[in-house]
Design a binder for these strands. Structure first.
Lengths: 151, 151
DNA sequence: CTACCTGCAAACTCTTTGCAAGCAG
DNA sequence: CTGCTTGCAAAGAGTTTGCAGGTAG
């Protein structure tokens, strides 16, 4: 199945990877949702209209997309990894997660980013100096109970 | 193998669990290290002097210890879960992690906690209100490159 | 054309479960 | 004694790998 030059083609080619239908479709699937999809989720969604796709290819593609920085890997401790488009290539803004320890619901939040930036600015440089560590990224999150599980 | 009343006995019994040699030994193993042990790590350490212990028991015990809040489960994306004694029952202070994405080394840090507390105080209440979510715990961490991998 | 990419199936690794025997209380 | 706990073995679940055929460039 050939495709001229998908939306993501140049990003792949710039890094020495080929632009293929499968890779485009996986990126489009991630782009089209606000959920945090597992490899199996992605596989099933695509399978409905592209029935010969293989689950192994989804895994292999996700690995590449992470390497390119197009996708983030997430762990909410529900037994599988989950993936989301990186913020710099998606319409999503910088955000973090509230994780319900009862029903496993995930809430994305993008609030109070100024406070976050202020906090990170205060400590990142100092952390790097003290521990001789080059920080590339951070993660922040809260666990607790969502409104449904509270009542 | 019977034991009168281990150091952790009352904590287990208070929650309706029995105090057993295996459970004591797992807690002592976690207490004795500054590493973040996987179930297999714990199993192997104990196996050297208590050879009939089963790996399944380690998994089952860790689940209980998490339920009791004695232990924290960690994920550093290296294919296995890792465990550490909770700060309120250990000599460790509140801390977070720097994770080297190259060699997977983990650095615990306990610095700049005042800045962290200030930040959390600013946003937790507001997050709870806005998203109708009861926060119980938080996690913070940084990924990047350690000094060895930098050079 | 040629090297990279893919689907399929099998292999692997970590984790969970069933069960009979063993212990704590 | 009674029911929770354990070790062992087997099963489960998610992920990775080998390989032959397919395809991008």
């Amino acid at each position: 199945m050939r495709r001229e030059c998908g939306k993501w083609g140049h990003r792949l080619r710039n890094h020495g990877f080929r632009s293929t239908f499968t890779r485009e479709i996986i990126l489009e699937t991630l782009e089209a949702t606000s959920e945090h999809l597992s490899p199996e989720d992605i596989y099933k969604k695509i399978k409905t209209y592209y029935s010969t796709i293989g689950l192994a290819t989804v895994y292999r593609t996700l690995e590449i997309l992470i390497e390119l920085g197009l996708v983030n890997k997430l762990d909410f401790d529900d037994g599988r990894k989950r993936y989301e488009l990186a913020e710099n290539v998606s319409s999503k803004t910088h955000h973090h997660h509230l994780i319900c320890i009862s029903c496993r619901k995930i809430i994305d939040y993008s609030d109070f980013l100024n406070d976050e930036i202020e906090f990170l600015n205060k400590i990142e440089k100092k952390l790097e100096m003290k521990h001789n560590f080059k920080i590339q990224d951070h993660f922040i999150g809260f666990t607790g109970l969502c409104s449904v599980c509270l009542s």
